[in-house]
Design a protein around this nucleic acid. Structure first.
Length: 363
DNA sequence: AAACCAAGCAACCGCCTTGCC
DNA sequence: TGGCAAGGCGGTTGCTTGGTT
């Protein structure tokens, strides 16, 4: 079905997709004679291919014990588990999955499993909760979906926001800003509970962000205090909950997944072990940490960052929708002291220890 | 309906390892 | 022990397909 167009190399050997006739010749020959020397095989089998191509075709597609079709859930889990031990040793992984080839597993990993893990906030190389992901662009699609949903649905920053039919006016970058606002709101909602363990995080907070935030705050305790003050001043009631139930994307299901890493360390956040589920990581034993995150991941998530700086939403027509501080104060009609809030906010922003990611979001 | 785009995957490329002389 | 050939392996390419604009 797919593949390369048929062609020949300098030596006149055919390249590209195999035809059914070629397949049959190869099968017939190997069934009668075995493959023997792959280099000698093409001539003996009457094929105008190099031996390497024949070997690949046989081992990946024509072997009688090849298992075709979709990967089962068990296979999926097994691959993830084995990869956490073995890394990109596809052939080694393939030996544990009868009927599956290294090439097939590799493709499946690159097209499905890697994305799946990333979406769950797990580094597909280290199999640890991601820390490099503190880059909003890695989850820009989800954030945009989040923003779009909330714009088109029920709430966002204030009622007048929707009178303007913004979804038609917004550019992607504007939507990104909206998404950042929402993320920030989630932060404050978390903090307003005065507890940063994910076990206490409300249901409507995407656990992915909860984990990130907790990790960040663990490293920056001063910011935790500042943010908590800010959140308490704001009061969580002023922040309409942003339900993730309307998201187009599937939120990472931490409730059913345990990140079994080193013993006694289950997705440690702060001093609290985060039990992210009762089903152990694919149902296998603990996974040792692998090598540090590879550059691959950096590229995967997108290196660039969206514009930081001015937090106001300036539309194409030059009108400014709202500024960060305006949002923070005006969205809480019961707030008694926007000055305090602003001061706290500034403290937080000025803190040298602020991590670039959260700082950037907040900015 | 056409153009565009992204995902999926078969096949290739080139490096590394192994085995033989 | 060094050189060579063959096989093995992981990464990459590029075509097809299906969805979206």
């Amino acid at each position: 079905m797919m593949g390369r167009s048929s062609s020949s190399d300098e030596s006149g050997l055919k390249k590209g997709p195999w035809t059914p006739e070629e397949d049959q010749k190869l099968i017939d020959y190997i069934e009668q004679n075995g493959h023997g020397s792959w280099r000698a095989l093409p001539a003996l089998a009457g094929l105008n291919r190099c031996g390497k191509s024949c070997r690949l075709r046989w081992t990946n597609y024509l072997r009688p014990d090849i298992k075709r079709g979709n990967f089962t859930e068990d296979e999926e889990k097994l691959i993830i588990h084995l990869h956490s031990h073995l890394g990109n040793k596809w052939s080694a992984i393939a030996t544990h999955l009868p009927g599956r080839t290294d090439n097939e597993i590799k493709n499946f990993w690159n097209t499905h499993l890697k994305k799946k893990l990333l979406q769950m906030g797990i580094d597909p190389v280290t199999h640890q909760p991601r820390t490099d992901h503190l880059d909003i662009l890695a989850h820009l699609p989800q954030l945009l979906a989040l923003a779009a949903n909330n714009l088109g649905a029920t709430n966002l920053l204030n009622p007048s926001f929707f009178d303007m039919n913004l979804s038609a006016l917004m550019s992607p970058s504007e939507a990104t800003q909206i998404a950042k606002f929402q993320l920030l709101q989630n932060i404050l909602q978390v903090l307003s509970t005065n507890n940063t363990t994910t076990s206490s995080i409300p249901q409507n907070i995407d656990p992915f962000y909860a984990v990130q935030l907790s990790e960040y705050l663990k490293l920056n305790p001063q910011n935790l205090q500042n943010l908590q003050e800010l959140a308490m001043n704001q009061g969580s009631s002023s922040f309409p909950p942003f339900s993730t139930t309307t998201h187009d994307f599937v939120s990472p299901n931490y409730s059913n997944l345990e990140l079994g890493h080193e013993e006694g360390s289950k997705g440690v956040i702060g001093e609290h072990a985060v039990m992210v589920g009762k089903e152990e990581y694919g149902g296998f034993e603990c996974v040792p940490p692998l090598v540090p995150a590879s550059p691959e991941n950096v590229g995967d998530g997108g290196k660039g960052r969206s514009n930081g700086g001015d937090a106001s939403l300036e539309l194409g027509n030059g009108s400014v929708l709202m500024k960060q501080n305006e949002h923070l104060s005006s969205s809480n009609p019961t707030s008694t002291s926007t000055t305090t809030i602003d001061a706290n906010w500034q403290d937080f922003m000025d803190d040298e220890a602020s991590g670039c990611y959260w700082k950037e979001i907040i900015e």
